[in-house]
């Protein structure tokens, strides 16, 4: 069964929405989003630890999107931008949720899923080890960080990566990643 991006967008749109965007993910858009979020976090007088974590996670999430959006379904291309992605940042008390979504082809599901599942089983100490291992051993790819992004997000938030693949058609799925930055471990 197919889904509509609009429905999904509405579904994710819960809590206090700080930022919501669907469309082309470009370096300029990333700049604008980061500036907007930073000034909101300042307005909230948010604790610097949370502020930095949210900002860092947003940078990685957006750049992951930017580097990994490659193609979108043909019947979708007519209606929307070629580098289509969605972003939502919501706030619930002092918890921030960053959700991103982009199309992936069916063959990407398995490797992506196994990577996330692996990350989700690791302790903080193990994540640190994995991060350093990738840092030292992987060549940086044309696409960006050489696979450090998700590990970094998991390490900084201390939370598991929630994800979902929604079937669009035979070939395409919509990949949604939800990252929670909570203040449970933050000393005030």
């Amino acid at each position: 069964m197919s889904f509509t991006v609009q429905d999904l967008y509405t579904e994710l749109n819960e809590g206090d929405v700080l930022l919501a965007y669907k469309g082309s993910i470009t370096p300029e858009l990333i700049n604008d989003v980061l500036d907007a979020l930073e000034s909101k976090l300042m307005d909230f007088n948010e604790h610097s630890k949370i502020r930095k974590k949210v900002y860092n996670v947003l940078v990685e999430s957006l750049q992951n999107l930017y580097h990994h959006i490659d193609e979108i379904p043909l019947d979708f291309a007519d209606q929307l931008d070629p580098r289509f992605g969605i972003l939502l940042v919501t706030k619930n008390d002092n918890n921030y949720k960053i959700s991103t979504g982009n199309f992936v082809t069916a063959d990407k599901i398995k490797p992506l899923k196994s990577k996330i599942e692996k990350i989700n089983t690791l302790s903080n100490e193990e994540l640190k080890g994995l991060y350093k291992d990738i840092l030292v051993n992987n060549k940086i790819s044309e696409k960006g960080g050489g696979g450090l992004g998700l590990v970094d997000i998991a390490r900084k938030t201390g939370n598991i990566l929630e994800y979902e693949f929604k079937s669009f058609d035979n070939k395409y799925f919509f990949f949604i990643l939800n990252v929670l930055v909570s203040d449970l471990n933050i000393n005030r």
Partner: peptide, 13 residues
């Protein structure tokens, strides 16, 4: 550094 992304982390190395 106030912030650095994972793509920079390789370059800093």
């Amino acid at each position: 550094l106030e912030y650095f992304n994972t793509s920079s982390s390789k370059c800093i190395l």
